[in-house]
Design a protein around this nucleic acid. Structure first.
Lengths: 187, 187
DNA sequence: TGTAGCATGTAAGCCGTTACATGATTGA
DNA sequence: TCAATCATGTAACGGCTTACATGCTACA
Protein backbone atom coordinates (compact mmCIF):
# COMPACT_ATOMS: atom_id res chain seq x y z
CA UNK A 1 0.00 0.00 0.00
CA UNK A 2 2.73 2.44 0.86
CA UNK A 3 5.67 0.82 -0.90
CA UNK A 4 4.84 0.57 -4.58
CA UNK A 5 8.03 1.72 -6.18
CA UNK A 6 11.55 1.53 -4.76
CA UNK A 7 13.07 4.60 -3.19
CA UNK A 8 15.77 6.42 -5.13
CA UNK A 9 19.30 5.52 -4.11
CA UNK A 10 19.85 8.99 -2.71
CA UNK A 11 17.06 8.33 -0.21
CA UNK A 12 18.88 5.22 1.02
CA UNK A 13 22.13 7.14 1.11
CA UNK A 14 20.65 9.83 3.34
CA UNK A 15 18.92 7.22 5.46
CA UNK A 16 22.30 5.54 5.81
CA UNK A 17 23.87 8.74 7.09
CA UNK A 18 21.27 8.79 9.84
CA UNK A 19 22.71 5.51 11.12
CA UNK A 20 25.81 7.44 12.18
CA UNK A 21 24.44 10.69 13.44
CA UNK A 22 21.57 9.94 15.79
CA UNK A 23 19.22 12.86 15.24
CA UNK A 24 19.83 15.51 12.65
CA UNK A 25 18.12 18.51 11.10
CA UNK A 26 17.87 18.72 7.33
CA UNK A 27 20.56 21.33 7.43
CA UNK A 28 22.92 19.12 9.40
CA UNK A 29 22.21 16.16 7.16
CA UNK A 30 23.20 18.25 4.17
CA UNK A 31 26.53 18.93 5.89
CA UNK A 32 27.04 15.23 6.51
CA UNK A 33 26.30 14.59 2.86
CA UNK A 34 28.85 17.22 1.84
CA UNK A 35 31.44 15.49 4.00
CA UNK A 36 30.77 12.01 2.69
CA UNK A 37 28.38 11.46 -0.21
CA UNK A 38 29.85 14.34 -2.16
CA UNK A 39 33.00 12.38 -2.97
CA UNK A 40 31.45 9.30 -4.51
CA UNK A 41 27.75 9.87 -4.88
CA UNK A 42 26.17 13.30 -5.07
CA UNK A 43 25.94 16.40 -3.02
CA UNK A 44 22.17 16.77 -2.99
CA UNK A 45 20.78 20.30 -3.03
CA UNK A 46 19.24 21.51 0.24
CA UNK A 47 15.82 21.35 -1.31
CA UNK A 48 16.44 17.75 -2.28
CA UNK A 49 17.48 16.86 1.26
CA UNK A 50 14.19 18.19 2.60
CA UNK A 51 12.26 16.44 -0.13
CA UNK A 52 13.91 13.10 0.66
CA UNK A 53 13.47 13.52 4.39
CA UNK A 54 9.79 14.11 3.83
CA UNK A 55 9.58 11.07 1.61
CA UNK A 56 11.36 8.92 4.21
CA UNK A 57 8.98 10.20 6.85
CA UNK A 58 5.95 9.41 4.69
CA UNK A 59 7.30 5.90 4.24
CA UNK A 60 7.65 5.58 7.98
CA UNK A 61 11.42 5.07 7.86
CA UNK A 62 12.36 8.07 9.98
CA UNK A 63 10.75 9.81 12.93
CA UNK A 64 10.48 13.59 12.91
CA UNK A 65 10.50 15.49 16.15
CA UNK A 66 10.10 19.17 16.88
CA UNK A 67 12.98 20.24 19.05
CA UNK A 68 14.07 23.59 20.30
CA UNK A 69 17.46 24.78 19.28
CA UNK A 70 19.45 27.59 20.83
CA UNK A 71 17.18 30.48 21.76
CA UNK A 72 13.57 29.46 21.72
CA UNK A 73 13.84 28.43 18.11
CA UNK A 74 12.02 25.32 16.97
CA UNK A 75 13.54 23.00 14.39
CA UNK A 76 12.69 19.56 13.10
CA UNK A 77 15.06 16.73 13.87
CA UNK A 78 15.00 13.39 12.08
CA UNK A 79 16.01 10.02 13.42
CA UNK A 80 16.03 6.63 11.69
CA UNK A 81 13.58 4.22 13.34
CA UNK A 82 13.43 0.42 13.51
CA UNK A 83 11.46 0.15 10.31
CA UNK A 84 13.98 2.36 8.56
CA UNK A 85 16.91 0.36 9.84
CA UNK A 86 15.27 -2.85 8.73
CA UNK A 87 14.44 -1.47 5.30
CA UNK A 88 17.99 -0.18 4.85
CA UNK A 89 19.46 -3.59 5.70
CA UNK A 90 16.98 -5.26 3.38
CA UNK A 91 18.03 -2.94 0.57
CA UNK A 92 21.71 -3.61 1.18
CA UNK A 93 21.15 -7.36 1.28
CA UNK A 94 18.67 -7.82 -1.52
CA UNK A 95 19.83 -5.51 -4.27
CA UNK A 96 23.12 -5.56 -6.11
CA UNK A 97 25.41 -2.58 -6.43
CA UNK A 98 25.27 -1.12 -9.92
CA UNK A 99 28.51 -0.47 -11.71
CA UNK A 100 29.74 3.07 -11.03
CA UNK A 101 28.86 5.86 -13.42
CA UNK A 102 31.51 8.43 -14.08
CA UNK A 103 30.71 11.82 -15.54
CA UNK A 104 34.17 13.00 -16.44
CA UNK A 105 34.15 16.27 -18.38
CA UNK A 106 37.94 16.35 -18.51
CA UNK A 107 38.10 12.97 -20.24
CA UNK A 108 35.26 14.01 -22.52
CA UNK A 109 37.12 17.12 -23.60
CA UNK A 110 40.37 15.23 -23.98
CA UNK A 111 38.56 13.00 -26.45
CA UNK A 112 38.07 16.09 -28.58
CA UNK A 113 41.67 17.21 -28.23
CA UNK A 114 42.13 17.22 -31.99
CA UNK A 115 39.81 20.23 -32.18
CA UNK A 116 41.83 22.55 -29.96
CA UNK A 117 45.30 23.87 -29.40
CA UNK A 118 47.60 21.46 -27.51
CA UNK A 119 48.26 24.30 -25.09
CA UNK A 120 44.56 24.38 -24.24
CA UNK A 121 44.58 20.65 -23.49
CA UNK A 122 47.60 21.11 -21.24
CA UNK A 123 45.96 24.02 -19.47
CA UNK A 124 42.83 21.98 -18.86
CA UNK A 125 44.84 19.12 -17.37
CA UNK A 126 46.75 21.53 -15.15
CA UNK A 127 43.54 23.02 -13.90
CA UNK A 128 42.23 19.54 -13.21
CA UNK A 129 45.39 18.83 -11.22
CA UNK A 130 44.73 21.84 -9.06
CA UNK A 131 41.14 20.83 -8.43
CA UNK A 132 42.26 17.31 -7.58
CA UNK A 133 44.69 18.68 -5.01
CA UNK A 134 41.92 20.77 -3.46
CA UNK A 135 39.50 17.88 -3.26
CA UNK A 136 42.20 15.64 -1.92
CA UNK A 137 42.95 18.11 0.85
CA UNK A 138 39.25 18.39 1.73
CA UNK A 139 38.93 14.65 1.93
CA UNK A 140 42.13 14.25 3.93
CA UNK A 141 40.82 16.72 6.47
CA UNK A 142 37.62 14.77 6.82
CA UNK A 143 39.53 11.52 7.17
CA UNK A 144 41.71 13.04 9.87
CA UNK A 145 38.59 13.85 11.82
CA UNK A 146 37.23 10.30 11.85
CA UNK A 147 40.23 8.02 11.55
CA UNK A 148 40.51 7.20 15.26
CA UNK A 149 36.85 6.42 15.79
CA UNK A 150 35.92 2.77 15.35
CA UNK A 151 32.29 3.69 14.61
CA UNK A 152 33.57 5.40 11.45
CA UNK A 153 35.69 2.44 10.38
CA UNK A 154 33.82 2.06 7.11
CA UNK A 155 33.53 5.75 6.24
CA UNK A 156 37.29 5.94 6.85
CA UNK A 157 37.87 3.10 4.38
CA UNK A 158 35.76 4.88 1.80
CA UNK A 159 37.72 8.07 2.40
CA UNK A 160 41.03 6.25 1.93
CA UNK A 161 39.63 4.79 -1.27
CA UNK A 162 38.87 8.33 -2.40
CA UNK A 163 42.37 9.52 -1.66
CA UNK A 164 43.88 6.70 -3.69
CA UNK A 165 41.49 7.47 -6.51
CA UNK A 166 42.53 11.12 -6.54
CA UNK A 167 46.19 10.10 -6.48
CA UNK A 168 45.65 7.76 -9.42
CA UNK A 169 43.91 10.52 -11.36
CA UNK A 170 46.74 12.95 -10.62
CA UNK A 171 49.32 10.41 -11.80
CA UNK A 172 47.43 9.73 -15.02
CA UNK A 173 46.97 13.44 -15.64
CA UNK A 174 50.69 14.06 -15.14
CA UNK A 175 51.63 11.32 -17.60
CA UNK A 176 49.16 12.64 -20.15
CA UNK A 177 50.65 16.11 -19.86
CA UNK A 178 54.12 14.73 -20.46
CA UNK A 179 52.93 12.75 -23.44
CA UNK A 180 51.25 15.76 -25.00
CA UNK A 181 54.28 17.94 -24.29
CA UNK A 182 56.54 15.43 -26.03
CA UNK A 183 54.22 15.29 -29.00
CA UNK A 184 54.17 19.05 -29.20
CA UNK A 185 57.94 19.23 -29.27
CA UNK A 186 58.16 16.57 -31.95
CA UNK A 187 55.94 18.46 -34.34
CA UNK B 1 16.94 34.21 -31.25
CA UNK B 2 17.83 30.55 -31.54
CA UNK B 3 20.47 30.29 -28.83
CA UNK B 4 18.91 31.23 -25.51
CA UNK B 5 20.12 28.54 -23.18
CA UNK B 6 23.26 26.44 -23.52
CA UNK B 7 23.03 22.93 -24.89
CA UNK B 8 23.38 20.06 -22.46
CA UNK B 9 26.84 18.54 -22.32
CA UNK B 10 25.56 15.32 -23.84
CA UNK B 11 24.60 17.28 -26.97
CA UNK B 12 28.18 18.52 -27.30
CA UNK B 13 29.46 15.02 -26.62
CA UNK B 14 27.39 13.57 -29.45
CA UNK B 15 28.29 16.46 -31.70
CA UNK B 16 31.91 15.70 -30.89
CA UNK B 17 31.52 12.10 -31.98
CA UNK B 18 30.35 13.36 -35.34
CA UNK B 19 33.77 14.96 -35.83
CA UNK B 20 35.21 11.45 -36.14
CA UNK B 21 32.56 9.60 -38.04
CA UNK B 22 31.60 11.66 -41.07
CA UNK B 23 27.93 10.82 -41.50
CA UNK B 24 26.04 8.59 -39.10
CA UNK B 25 22.52 7.40 -38.42
CA UNK B 26 21.13 7.78 -34.93
CA UNK B 27 21.58 4.08 -34.51
CA UNK B 28 25.23 4.22 -35.47
CA UNK B 29 25.84 7.22 -33.26
CA UNK B 30 24.47 5.27 -30.33
CA UNK B 31 27.02 2.55 -31.07
CA UNK B 32 29.81 5.11 -31.14
CA UNK B 33 28.60 6.42 -27.82
CA UNK B 34 28.61 2.92 -26.38
CA UNK B 35 32.19 2.49 -27.51
CA UNK B 36 33.43 5.80 -26.11
CA UNK B 37 31.15 7.97 -23.99
CA UNK B 38 29.93 4.99 -22.01
CA UNK B 39 33.20 4.72 -20.14
CA UNK B 40 33.45 8.24 -18.79
CA UNK B 41 30.26 10.07 -19.55
CA UNK B 42 26.96 8.32 -20.18
CA UNK B 43 25.53 5.80 -22.52
CA UNK B 44 22.52 7.79 -23.67
CA UNK B 45 19.34 5.85 -24.40
CA UNK B 46 18.41 5.48 -28.06
CA UNK B 47 15.52 7.85 -27.56
CA UNK B 48 17.90 10.41 -26.10
CA UNK B 49 20.21 10.12 -29.08
CA UNK B 50 17.35 10.90 -31.45
CA UNK B 51 16.18 13.74 -29.23
CA UNK B 52 19.65 15.30 -29.17
CA UNK B 53 20.14 14.86 -32.90
CA UNK B 54 16.88 16.66 -33.48
CA UNK B 55 17.93 19.43 -31.12
CA UNK B 56 21.28 19.78 -32.88
CA UNK B 57 19.50 19.94 -36.21
CA UNK B 58 17.11 22.59 -34.95
CA UNK B 59 20.09 24.62 -33.79
CA UNK B 60 21.63 24.28 -37.23
CA UNK B 61 24.70 22.44 -35.96
CA UNK B 62 24.21 19.27 -38.00
CA UNK B 63 22.81 18.55 -41.43
CA UNK B 64 20.33 15.71 -41.89
CA UNK B 65 20.13 13.86 -45.13
CA UNK B 66 17.81 11.11 -46.31
CA UNK B 67 19.91 8.31 -47.63
CA UNK B 68 19.08 4.89 -48.85
CA UNK B 69 20.58 2.00 -47.02
CA UNK B 70 20.83 -1.57 -48.20
CA UNK B 71 17.70 -2.64 -49.96
CA UNK B 72 15.55 0.33 -50.87
CA UNK B 73 15.33 1.38 -47.26
CA UNK B 74 15.54 5.08 -46.41
CA UNK B 75 17.35 6.27 -43.31
CA UNK B 76 18.43 9.64 -42.00
CA UNK B 77 22.12 10.39 -41.77
CA UNK B 78 23.57 13.25 -39.77
CA UNK B 79 26.74 15.17 -40.40
CA UNK B 80 28.28 18.03 -38.42
CA UNK B 81 28.40 21.24 -40.46
CA UNK B 82 30.63 24.33 -40.28
CA UNK B 83 28.41 26.06 -37.78
CA UNK B 84 28.46 22.96 -35.59
CA UNK B 85 32.20 22.63 -35.78
CA UNK B 86 32.60 26.28 -34.89
CA UNK B 87 30.17 26.04 -32.00
CA UNK B 88 31.88 22.93 -30.65
CA UNK B 89 35.27 24.63 -30.70
CA UNK B 90 33.79 27.69 -29.05
CA UNK B 91 32.33 25.51 -26.29
CA UNK B 92 35.66 23.76 -25.74
CA UNK B 93 37.54 27.04 -25.62
CA UNK B 94 35.17 29.21 -23.62
CA UNK B 95 33.83 26.94 -20.93
CA UNK B 96 35.76 25.19 -18.19
CA UNK B 97 35.58 21.48 -17.53
CA UNK B 98 33.58 20.75 -14.40
CA UNK B 99 35.09 18.48 -11.82
CA UNK B 100 34.07 14.85 -12.46
CA UNK B 101 31.04 13.43 -10.71
CA UNK B 102 31.27 9.86 -9.58
CA UNK B 103 28.20 7.81 -8.76
CA UNK B 104 29.79 4.87 -7.04
CA UNK B 105 27.24 2.50 -5.51
CA UNK B 106 29.98 0.16 -4.30
CA UNK B 107 31.63 2.90 -2.27
CA UNK B 108 28.23 4.02 -1.02
CA UNK B 109 27.42 0.54 0.23
CA UNK B 110 30.88 0.11 1.71
CA UNK B 111 30.17 3.22 3.76
CA UNK B 112 27.32 1.29 5.35
CA UNK B 113 29.42 -1.81 5.95
CA UNK B 114 28.66 -1.70 9.66
CA UNK B 115 25.07 -2.67 8.87
CA UNK B 116 25.81 -5.95 7.10
CA UNK B 117 27.76 -9.14 7.42
CA UNK B 118 31.48 -8.83 6.54
CA UNK B 119 30.93 -11.70 4.13
CA UNK B 120 28.38 -9.62 2.26
CA UNK B 121 30.87 -6.77 1.92
CA UNK B 122 33.49 -9.17 0.59
CA UNK B 123 31.02 -10.67 -1.85
CA UNK B 124 30.11 -7.21 -3.11
CA UNK B 125 33.76 -6.32 -3.67
CA UNK B 126 34.37 -9.60 -5.47
CA UNK B 127 31.44 -8.97 -7.74
CA UNK B 128 32.79 -5.49 -8.43
CA UNK B 129 36.12 -7.04 -9.35
CA UNK B 130 34.44 -9.24 -11.89
CA UNK B 131 32.57 -6.34 -13.42
CA UNK B 132 35.77 -4.32 -13.57
CA UNK B 133 37.49 -7.13 -15.44
CA UNK B 134 34.64 -7.27 -17.93
CA UNK B 135 34.63 -3.54 -18.54
CA UNK B 136 38.38 -3.53 -18.82
CA UNK B 137 38.25 -6.21 -21.48
CA UNK B 138 35.58 -4.30 -23.41
CA UNK B 139 37.66 -1.15 -23.32
CA UNK B 140 40.87 -2.97 -24.26
CA UNK B 141 39.14 -4.40 -27.30
CA UNK B 142 38.03 -0.94 -28.36
CA UNK B 143 41.52 0.44 -27.83
CA UNK B 144 43.00 -2.36 -29.93
CA UNK B 145 40.72 -1.30 -32.75
CA UNK B 146 41.87 2.33 -32.84
CA UNK B 147 45.40 2.35 -31.46
CA UNK B 148 47.18 2.46 -34.82
CA UNK B 149 45.07 5.23 -36.31
CA UNK B 150 46.46 8.71 -35.79
CA UNK B 151 42.99 10.23 -36.21
CA UNK B 152 41.99 8.45 -33.01
CA UNK B 153 45.05 9.63 -31.08
CA UNK B 154 42.96 11.38 -28.46
CA UNK B 155 40.27 8.72 -28.08
CA UNK B 156 43.10 6.23 -27.59
CA UNK B 157 44.53 8.38 -24.81
CA UNK B 158 41.16 8.51 -23.12
CA UNK B 159 40.85 4.74 -23.45
CA UNK B 160 44.28 4.22 -21.88
CA UNK B 161 43.19 6.54 -19.08
CA UNK B 162 40.17 4.32 -18.57
CA UNK B 163 42.28 1.18 -18.39
CA UNK B 164 44.50 2.72 -15.74
CA UNK B 165 41.44 3.84 -13.82
CA UNK B 166 40.01 0.32 -13.85
CA UNK B 167 43.36 -1.08 -12.76
CA UNK B 168 43.52 1.37 -9.88
CA UNK B 169 40.01 0.44 -8.81
CA UNK B 170 40.86 -3.26 -8.94
CA UNK B 171 43.97 -2.71 -6.81
CA UNK B 172 42.03 -0.70 -4.23
CA UNK B 173 39.28 -3.28 -4.14
CA UNK B 174 41.80 -6.07 -3.61
CA UNK B 175 43.45 -4.24 -0.72
CA UNK B 176 40.08 -3.53 0.86
CA UNK B 177 39.17 -7.19 0.68
CA UNK B 178 42.42 -8.15 2.37
CA UNK B 179 41.87 -5.56 5.07
CA UNK B 180 38.36 -6.78 5.77
CA UNK B 181 39.49 -10.42 5.75
CA UNK B 182 42.19 -9.63 8.30
CA UNK B 183 39.69 -7.82 10.49
CA UNK B 184 37.30 -10.74 10.29
CA UNK B 185 39.98 -13.19 11.40
CA UNK B 186 40.98 -10.98 14.32
CA UNK B 187 37.48 -10.90 15.76
C1' DT C 1 9.53 -18.79 -40.49
C1' DG C 2 11.13 -16.60 -36.93
C1' DT C 3 14.59 -14.02 -34.52
C1' DA C 4 18.20 -10.67 -34.18
C1' DG C 5 19.67 -6.48 -35.67
C1' DC C 6 18.64 -1.97 -37.98
C1' DA C 7 16.00 2.20 -37.59
C1' DT C 8 13.01 5.84 -35.61
C1' DG C 9 10.41 7.82 -32.80
C1' DT C 10 6.41 9.37 -28.73
C1' DA C 11 4.74 9.55 -23.92
C1' DA C 12 5.00 9.41 -19.15
C1' DG C 13 7.37 10.37 -15.43
C1' DC C 14 11.26 10.49 -11.94
C1' DC C 15 15.46 12.70 -10.15
C1' DG C 16 17.58 16.56 -9.19
C1' DT C 17 18.78 21.44 -9.99
C1' DT C 18 18.19 26.47 -9.82
C1' DA C 19 15.54 30.27 -8.50
C1' DC C 20 12.74 32.16 -5.30
C1' DA C 21 10.79 33.15 -0.71
C1' DT C 22 10.99 33.58 4.24
C1' DG C 23 12.68 34.30 8.62
C1' DA C 24 15.52 33.50 13.09
C1' DT C 25 20.14 33.64 15.44
C1' DT C 26 24.96 34.83 16.12
C1' DG C 27 28.82 37.53 16.10
C1' DA C 28 31.75 41.29 14.14
C1' DT D 1 23.54 47.01 12.26
C1' DC D 2 24.84 44.10 8.91
C1' DA D 3 26.47 39.80 7.17
C1' DA D 4 26.93 34.97 7.72
C1' DT D 5 24.91 31.01 9.13
C1' DC D 6 21.00 28.29 10.50
C1' DA D 7 16.66 26.55 8.93
C1' DT D 8 12.81 25.23 5.84
C1' DG D 9 10.47 24.98 2.19
C1' DT D 10 7.78 25.78 -2.97
C1' DA D 11 7.82 26.20 -8.05
C1' DA D 12 9.49 25.59 -12.44
C1' DC D 13 11.75 22.93 -15.30
C1' DG D 14 15.59 20.30 -17.66
C1' DG D 15 17.79 15.83 -18.50
C1' DC D 16 17.32 11.36 -19.00
C1' DT D 17 15.15 6.86 -18.48
C1' DT D 18 11.72 3.27 -19.27
C1' DA D 19 7.90 1.68 -21.67
C1' DC D 20 5.60 1.56 -25.73
C1' DA D 21 4.86 1.50 -30.80
C1' DT D 22 6.22 0.52 -35.49
C1' DG D 23 8.27 -1.67 -39.26
C1' DC D 24 12.13 -3.19 -42.38
C1' DT D 25 16.20 -6.42 -43.46
C1' DA D 26 19.26 -10.33 -43.12
C1' DC D 27 20.01 -14.74 -41.99
C1' DA D 28 19.68 -19.31 -39.92
Amino acid sequence: MSQERPLPTTAYALLGLLTFGQELTGYELKQWADATLRFYWVSPAMSQVYTELDRLRRHGLVDARESEGPGSRVTTRYRINDHGSQELRRWLAESDADFPVLKHPVALRLLLGHLVDPAAVLAMLEQYDGQLAERRADLQKILDGIEEDDAFRFPARVARWGLRYYDAEAAISRDLREEIERERRRR
